[in-house]
């Protein structure tokens, strides 16, 4: 598959224990609905990201089940409570079986 570009931004990379951290993430993906037709009238096959998961320091903090009604180049903003330092791993699961993974890091003082 083509390489998908991921953009991840945390509102802070260092936090005190218990602080709320905001995550903004964008991934380049067509999110093809399977309802569109090309110029010759052929249906463009459905191709979407089905699932999004965020793990912080090995613990799942937030996830989402996407559907065809998520706009192309899915953007997501959510929050989590900082408990311990570790990687912030974002995974998008493609319907075609591949994963798109992006990473950031949070340091908890």
């Amino acid at each position: 598959m083509a390489a998908h570009q991921v953009k991840i931004k945390l509102d802070k990379t260092e936090a005190k224990k218990g602080d709320i951290v905001e995550v903004k993430a964008l991934v380049y993906h067509p999110m093809e609905t399977g309802l569109r037709k090309d110029r010759s009238g052929k249906v463009i096959p459905r191709h979407i990201l089905k699932k999004f998961i965020c793990m912080v320091a090995g613990k799942e903090v937030f996830s989402a089940d996407f559907d065809t009604a998520i706009a192309a180049n899915p953007f997501i903003r959510f929050k989590f409570r900082a408990v311990q330092s570790g990687p912030v791993v974002l995974t998008w699961v493609d319907e075609d079986g591949s994963d798109i993974v992006g990473q950031a890091r949070i340091t908890v003082n």
Binding site: I20, K59, A69, K79
Partner: peptide, 17 residues
């Protein structure tokens, strides 16, 4: 879409398009 939260979310708030 369906969103899944947990106490680790801290706040039940989400944005998308």
């Amino acid at each position: 879409v369906t969103f899944h939260f947990s106490p680790a979310s801290g706040v039940a708030e989400v944005s998308t398009r």
